[in-house]
């Protein structure tokens, strides 16, 4: 089993979290959206996996490279 930490590519505000802990996600699905530079930027699942942990919540201000969640595959 592989654990992968997903980090934010950009600084911004968490606009929407699309899944919960334990959910199964498919490659390319939007896991959450970060509002930054007047855009809603999706953070996508890099591969089919399960969401093990979510470190952030809606409206949280996050910095670039901040860990957002862990995926289990």
């Amino acid at each position: 089993m592989k654990k992968t930490i997903i980090k934010s590519d950009v600084a911004g505000v968490v606009n929407e979290i699309c899944f919960s802990k334990g959910d199964i996600v498919k490659k390319g699905e939007s896991l959450l959206f970060i509002e930054s530079m007047k855009m809603e930027i999706p953070i996508e699942a890099p591969f089919d996996s399960e969401i093990e942990e979510i470190f952030t919540k809606k409206d949280e201000v996050i910095s670039q490279n901040q860990p957002l969640l862990t995926l289990k595959s």
Binding site: D9, V10, S36, M37, K38, M39, E40, I41, P42
Partner: peptide, 8 residues
């Protein structure tokens, strides 16, 4: 490419 970092 807006798909990544909103194109920034």
């Amino acid at each position: 490419n807006p798909k990544f970092n909103g194109g920034a």
